[in-house]
Amino acid sequence: MSASLKQHHERMRLAGVELVMIMPDSLEQHRAYGQALFGSELPYLYAPDTNRNIARAYSLLRKKEHHHGGFYYRSLRIVDRDGVITHRALPWTANTEVDEYHRLFDWLGMDRGEWAVQCGLTKAETEASRSRYLVGRRGVIDDAHP
């Protein structure tokens, strides 16, 4: 999903929309991931929720660990000029359902974007980059998580 959002970020900005990614990774991890996979930092704004305070405030925590690991729900919210939530998808399954990804652009009143899995990288390149990222972070594994 990062690839799709990276691809459409500039279009959203031109439409007067700011995009903020909320994740439990630190800012440094976020930057390292962008460099490893795309050769540059991811362009959108970032909220590192390392202490899970944002997740608690927005009810983003799963009751049980996802079978791939982790406790964070994917979610989508749109906030207006007054800081009021105008749209909400919780959970947001845009990583597996194209229609869900398109819902973002429908809500914004924009043309639908193409759902990009790899953003120009081949699958092999993506996996190789991600493996390097993970090995660089932990120095212990020899392959990426499926």
Binding site: S2, I22, L76, I78
Partner: peptide, 13 residues
């Protein structure tokens, strides 16, 4: 004027 908030789990997953 408008902000999109997207959450997802750690990149490791």
């Amino acid at each position: 004027g408008r902000v999109v908030l997207v959450s997802q789990d750690s990149y490791r997953y």
